[in-house]
Design a protein around this nucleic acid. Structure first.
Lengths: 339, 339
DNA sequence: TCAAAAGTGTTATCCTTACACCCATGT
DNA sequence: ACATGGGTGTAAGGATAACACTTTTGA
């Protein structure tokens, strides 16, 4: 293994997608980027920090430590998502931490970022400055199908068709096929799990503002409506990490009982359903949802509650955590409701 | 961000689990560790190498390059598995690559390893020295349930019960519950996907030889039969990576048509079934397997073949790769056969 | 002729989906 | 009374699991 010129330093960054559900809306913990006197429209980022090879025994411990430090918030359920190492996707952290005080003109350190998903039962307002919960529909407006196909999806459909038309004939069909599958064009079924695929398509098509940014160009002309439909960009590749998290969570909810990590100790069945709907971005069939719950034996009734919205008071339930160690247990089925 | 003493260097290692199926057996590409004149019983490892932050634009390109260099073998399908960063699980690469020529007594570099899964259609014998295909039952004898519950699983069951009995009473039930779920004790159902969970349990129980090794101790007394049942250890944490790969593959085969990445262009339905069985470690019901295939429209008949084993010649089929871009497509159902 | 595999048919059962309806409470 | 949500029943269709049987070849 010949030694060439000294290799560039490698920095490992950890990013966390912290998810909570607050009155029927799925929220993500965001950090304003170096929030000084900059305009409020500066893109947000995920909580992140450098991994210290000396101080931290495992990634997960490191993650918990710095998220608590940065946001004064304790994490519960945590799982690793993916490790991103592409050069050229606006390496996160490149201008902070290990690289912050390097001489100008020095070779930038290569940054590898390990993304994590964390779930917490309540979106407690943190006292930490520059930290805020944001609904993730802000970053992915096209992912919310709870009221039927969202306007954002329609605008994106048009933009993607134009993108396909701009291609040389040989590529046109390929582009269309990708768009059709990802965004349910021409009657194709919508698959809520393909969040990452959709975001990557938008990035590849140059529609996500991050694409132009990473190339050092200005974003092309576009209408206000389309801009809104494309969602708020994030610093670095954080929106990609967020998309990965949503994909993973939407998939996992079906085969592991992870929703309960987002619920308080006692909850009504409708609250549970609303949480699942917020994550899945789709409306569910009430009766069938409850029947599936029963079959699984996942929950157990308690007493009652009143202060609900309108209507008859609902019974409170709790997650039967015991069964996790008693038998293999799958997640919730998603009996979709078509409007 | 105060600068303490200079931080330890971080080295990123890439490991590949390269899988192929050869006459009904699932094989993994292994590398003999620094194979000099050492005894043949030296543990094997996975193909691995350091990631060069200057030369490589993405992990995947780096992986393909060094696997080809090391094994003279071209990868097809590739996906990232997981990034391992725990200190104390015998950091891979610590004594090679970037760390090889460091002064004795110098602080060892912290090694992070990114595991990848790769699938190839044929287990071509590579000309590369110290590289060999090994059936993965060698490393996980308890995972092969094609002929019913394997003897290895029974021996491990006993060992795990003893491990639970050795615990203080408070922990006894917890240990038993974990063992029950993972290894299907007391009538619990076997879940073929939990390969990693099972390996980690064996590691945690001190049964996997790697556990004692990582603590710098000698492996405890055990019978030859039990030793065989526990499978061949691997260097570093490679067996953990291998377990991760098998878990992932066994899961993925059901919801993505990945088996076909392991098949030649034309194959018989029985060959396909045998491949799935080798991966899943379970026998399948022939008729129901074929019916499910038909329903999915995944394959298309061609002509015929003869040179088969005994019996009537079977028709050859091919995977209809076109459908991948035409519609969302799920994997194969596993109609398990109970003996 | 027999072993070994290829193929075909059919049935019971369960899960999913869908539709329709009644109950309890606050305004 | 009526809006809002809680809660129950039931029937149709499709997928799965399980059974038994015929066909075609090579040795």
């Amino acid at each position: 293994m010949a030694r060439g010129p000294t290799p560039s330093p490698v920095v490992i960054g950890l990013s966390a997608v912290v998810v909570a559900v607050r009155d029927g809306e799925a929220m993500v913990l965001t950090v304003r980027s170096r929030g000084d006197g900059e305009p409020a429209s500066e893109p947000a980022g995920l909580p992140f920090g450098p991994f210290d090879p000396d101080g931290h025994r495992t990634f997960e411990l490191a993650l918990r430590a710095f998220v608590t430090a940065q946001t004064r918030f304790d994490l519960g359920y945590v799982e690793q998502l993916y490790t991103f190492g592409d050069r050229g996707r606006d390496a996160p952290l490149a201008d902070m931490g290990a690289g912050a005080d390097s001489a100008p003109g020095a070779r930038p350190s290569r940054v590898i970022s390990v993304g994590y998903l964390a779930l917490t039962p309540q979106a407690v307002e943190t006292a930490a400055p520059d930290t805020a919960w944001a609904p993730w529909t802000r970053f992915f407006p096209w992912e919310d199908w709870r009221q039927g196909r969202p306007a954002a999806a329609l605008l994106i459909e048009d933009a993607l068709r134009q993108w396909a038309d701009r291609a040389p004939p040989a590529q046109r069909e390929l582009r269309l096929a990708r768009a059709r599958l990802a965004f349910a064009l021409d009657g194709a079924p919508w698959n809520e799990e393909r969040v990452l695929e959709r975001y990557e398509l938008l990035y590849g098509a140059g529609l996500a503002p991050e694409a132009a940014r990473d190339r050092g160009e200005a974003t092309g002309e576009r209408s206000d409506a389309l801009r809104a439909a494309l969602g708020a960009p994030m610093i670095s590749d954080h929106r990609r990490i967020l998309a990965t998290a949503l994909s993973r969570l939407r998939g996992k909810i079906k085969y592991r009982p992870v929703v309960f990590e987002l619920m308080p100790e006692a909850f009504t069945l409708l609250a549970l359903q609303r949480a699942v709907e917020a994550i899945a971005g789709a409306s569910l069939h009430k009766q069938n949802f409850r029947r599936a719950l029963e079959r699984g034996g996942l929950v157990e009734g308690l007493g009652r509650i009143d202060a609900d919205t309108g209507g008859r008071p609902a019974e409170l339930f709790r997650f039967r955590r015991e069964i996790l160690s008693a038998r293999p247990v799958s997640g919730l089925s998603l009996p979709l409701l078509r409007d």
